[in-house]
Design a protein around this nucleic acid. Sequence first.
DNA 1: CTTATGAGTCTTTTT
DNA 2: GACTCATAAG
Length: 864
Amino acid sequence: MSDFELLSPDGGALSSPFDSVRGGAGGASGARGADPLLDGLNPPQARAVEARGPALLIVAGAGSGKTRVLTHRIAHLIRNKEAWPSQILAITFTNKAASEMRERVAGLLGDAAEGMWISTFHSACVRILRREAERFGYVAGFTIYDSADSRALLKRIIKETEADSYGFTPANTSAKISRLKNELSDADTYAATANEADPRERIFVEIFRTYEQELRRANAFDFDDLIGQTVHLFRSHPDVAAIYQRRFRHILVDEYQDTNHAQYSLIRELTRSVDPDTADRLVPPVREREVDGTGAIPGASLTVVGDSDQSIYAFRGADIRNIVEFERDFPGAEVVKLEQNYRSTQNILSAANAVIGNNFDRQEKNLFTTEGDGEKITGFTGYSQHDEARFVAEEIEDLHRAGLAYGDIAVFYRTNSQTRALEELLIRSAIPYRVLGGTKFYERAEIKDAMAYLTSLANPYDPIAWSRLLGVPKRGIGPMAEAQLAVFQEAQGISFHEAMLRADEIGFGPKVRGAILGLGELLRAARMAAGGGGTEDPEVEKKPTPVADVLKLILDETEMIEKLRAKRDPQDEARAENLEELVSVAREFDVRNPGAGLLEFLTEVSLVAAADELDDQSGTVSLMTLHTAKGLEFPAVFITGVEEGLLPHQMSVDEIGGINEERRLMYVGITRARKRLYLTLASTRATYGDIGVAMPSRFLQEIPDSLIDWRQTPGEVTSRGGTESRALNAPRGEGRSGSRSSRSSGRPESSVVFGRGGGSGAAAVAEPASGNMQSALDKWRERKRLAKEAQAAGGGFPNLVGTSIRDNGDLELAPGDRIRHEDYGEGRVTGITGEGSKRVAHTVFDSVGERKLLVKLSPITKVE
DNA sequence: CTTATGAGTCTTTTT
DNA sequence: GACTCATAAG
């Protein structure tokens, strides 16, 4: 109940909490006239802060200051005493966005910001579900299944129902179930409309139904349930819904264009009014000022922020109609458009506008800035992805030398698999980087193993966690023993932990029984240590034990780390380190959340998003997918792999609206850049292990030629990679260093060239102006044909730079040595820094000048 | 019951 | 080319 203390303050107290808060932002000490919260906002922004009414849609183009508007709007509501912090619910897309918003609101309001709910959809729902779980057959300690857990469960179900012969796989089944859940469907609803005559349909219904039952038995929710079950809870328990409908008077939703039907429904439920009857039954009783004339509590005011041009999550159910039809959905809604961009240069915005303008089904909207043109966009086509990555690495070094911090640079790509080539070159070049998302820390096998123990402590009925921990470390408990235990557990209706402690009732061999009993004892001890319910002694459960201590106990007792270290595989050392890292993550959590327990830790871990890993202080280049990049910004941005089949992705080409969504993805990528934007591609790309030819993306042709300064156009790519490619990169003609800032009036020249296209004979492409996309394309097509022939002839490609892992660990280098590098040719070492495997050779190459090289991994040899 | 080997599948994008 | 999975041998 403590959450509600601030809910219905009496009139006198209303003003008191705010008196001490003054001038958090502006410092305009108490002046009545100019509102510091509106200071420096443009008219539409100010309107978005001040507008009141039942519903507000803020159409916020990229970089138009929407976070500022949102935070100021919240602060404005509170500062004007229109709302208490506890009456605010703000939903963001990632935890990082949530904490940023929380910090910024706190910066404006100070302590007065305490008590607001600022979180993601999923976190907010977990909070509600944990509180209300008992009302519908769950326990507060429920487990959250991530997609891997769901798939593990589905795998078992598919096997048991022998559905695999019908083409059901964990992946496709999970995708289908997820899609249905996002539509708020369930097995029964689906069964009602399913075609009974189709055996595949019948089987799917059976799988779906079993999956639902198993989740419930496991006391677990999957990701989609978190939203869907909350909606379900609200709809089936109006009295519970009323608690939240009453409490939240102002609901703000960010990235509204990416909400799916379930999330939309959740918002609808939360903003519903409470009818007089239900309001009457509420505890504590409603006050007069909370209700309208009829005794009903009016619905909360709703503010949504979004940009339909940035809708990129259709694949997981995001429905663009939510934002497009907002005005119809919420009558009386006001719409404010923010079009002035405060992030990027005009050149970058022009490119973005040009690309997105090709989406016919959108509302006209044009971003503009008063910042000036800035530098041109840089284009580069590598021969291979290796070549492309090399360019990225070199350019990053150049930017860094020019004074840009590594942390100001980001590299985007469409698919996670593109990281490999990039990473390789970044490592070699001794550039600090980090990959956001991808195979996340928490998805690593050893981390999941350790986490399974913790999950099982919190939820001893969770079969996925339990089954996982049985096998790690190896202790002789195999599938047979597991199955028998599971049967026993189900028959007795007890937890897995209890079942293990009663292993002697099942009749195992002495060795297996010993192992099971030992493990059961360990879990019991750990459960007691964690302060969980397994204790008879009521004295014991007081303050929760630090999560790190529980984890340490498990790791020590199971000797997981030692056992990894004892193995030969060098990968296992890294795994051991990951486990140690997990302990420090837990320790940090304990410090950050004193009084929180295992459950909070598990929840937090389950809901981390890729972008949450971003740390502004890290001083490293950030690598991420275009999806992860949404909502972020960087002074310098590389978008790599701008090729047909990759961006737009092959998979999207046949989907309806697929290309438009890919185009929005491109748009999102471009608009992340503040000052410098690079678009890179490769003319060949390895997929599935063998090398295919790649075409430049259609999106490149949608950008006016005058905006891109091509260092190497698709047509110029030579089939000879390696050292000589540099000659082609070298500045040509007037050189690019001098007249880079072509005035806004200076575009005719290149557009004339552009228009010439067509005829293959327009040959003289080798001329200085490298920015001719059309003829470049022709040339490129010719190359592609040749390349295909060459490959068909079995000759393969000449000079393909090997990607084999090398190790120069023992190579001794000293200043003055001459070395030969596969890509850069010969050069002289000027200095060595770093220790052991992190030794870096600073080298001046004859052809390309100064480079940093990681000695251990660079393709170098010493020249005598 | 664990481990080694080979075949088969796969790659969009994520909370 | 990498990873998972099934099969067979230790």
